[in-house]
Simulated scan of single mutants.
Amino acid sequence: MLKIGFCDDDLSILKELQVLLDHYRVEKNRELAYTAYQSPLELLADMEKGLRFDILFLDVLMPGQTGIEAAREIREFDTAVKIIFLTSSAEFAVESYTVGAYFYQLKPIWAESFYRLMDSVIAECKKAEQRSLIMRCKTGITRIELEKLICCEVMGRTLLFCMEDGRTLESQGKLDDLAGQLAIYENFLRPHRSYLINMDYIRTLSSKSIVMQNQEEIPIPHGKYSDIKTRYLEYAFERQGIVV
């Protein structure tokens, strides 16, 4: 079930959004749950406690804190939620995309445009869900987008996920289990018993090590270089069109 959040200081807009969503989910026969907020501070408080949304409708201009300011805070601990800004003016459209906005919806919101937007963003959520992992991390339940995962290292029973944005997420588990889950994706390779890497982020490959784009250096066990190089070049030719 997809979780949707509405945040607008105008109670009439919140009621309008709830009515639109109720009609949409009945007409489309979709399982959707929503929570409404009149203050971004209330929304942030719940999200800091671990509540997560798949889709978030944020009014741009609200007393105390703008929707864009709230979105910047949200992005510090949730990069996956699809943020849709609501406003009666296009003035902040450019700035909204600096926080990874999915869409910028002008008011008033008509049913036809709302339905099209919901169809689009739900399709995007499903696509992201197919290429992501849900893990219990120190920061709470976290969706890890596989295309942004550089590598994973295991230390004892702790998995360390190195992400494209510089974050390192920690979760308890076995690398064998993770490797099994990701075996269906051609871009993931296990060059060493302690590492699983995303080949899209390889910077250099030598007989002794693999250096990733985040400068992480993964040792290559003795006698494994030829097999690893062959696997990487096959992937590069097939998926990225690299010519050597």
Rank of each mutant, 00 (worst) to 15 (best):
Y115N: 09
K208H: 11
L182Q: 04
L117K: 11
S209T: 08
Y97W: 07
M155C: 12
Q105Y: 12
G173D: 03
F188I: 02
H23A: 08
L17M: 15
M118E: 06
C125W: 00
Q105L: 15
T230Y: 09
A33K: 06
A71G: 10
A128G: 00
E27Y: 03
S12R: 12
L21F: 02
L133E: 10
L43C: 04
K126L: 13
F77M: 10
A33Y: 01
K148C: 12
A179Y: 10
K208E: 14
L56R: 07
N29T: 07
F85D: 07
Y34N: 10
T87D: 15
V154M: 05
Y104W: 09
S113V: 03
S120C: 08
M47S: 07
V19W: 03
A111E: 15
R231V: 04
Q215F: 07
L21E: 04
A33I: 01
G166V: 03
K15G: 12
V60H: 09
R25Y: 01
R72N: 02
T158I: 15
Q181T: 13
M212G: 08
Q130K: 15
L32T: 03
A71C: 07
I83A: 06
I150D: 10
V99I: 12
K224A: 14
T168F: 01
D46E: 15
M47Q: 11
W110K: 14
Y185H: 12
M135K: 14
I83D: 09
R239M: 13
R72H: 07
D9F: 03
L2H: 11
K107A: 10
L196W: 05
L58E: 09
A179Q: 11
F53S: 04
S207F: 01
E186M: 01
G156E: 08
Q38N: 13
T139K: 14
S207I: 08
A101F: 07
T230M: 09
E147T: 12
D176H: 06
E164H: 11
Y115Q: 03
I144W: 05
S96D: 03
R25L: 12
P40V: 08
D200G: 01
D165P: 04
K126E: 15
L233E: 12
D176Y: 02
Y24L: 04
Q130S: 13
D22Y: 01
Y34W: 14
Y37I: 04
V19P: 00
A80N: 12
G100K: 06
E112Y: 02
K3V: 00
Y24T: 03
Q213A: 07
V244T: 10
D59T: 05
A93H: 01
L56I: 08
D119P: 05
V99F: 07
D119E: 13
D46M: 02
F237H: 09
Q181M: 13
R116E: 14
D10T: 07
K208L: 11
Y185R: 01
E76D: 10
L117R: 13
L58H: 05
Y102I: 03
A179E: 13
M118C: 05
E69R: 08
K82V: 00
A179V: 08
T158W: 00
M62V: 05
I150L: 11
D46A: 14
S207G: 11
L146C: 07
I202V: 15
F161K: 02
Q215N: 14
L205P: 06
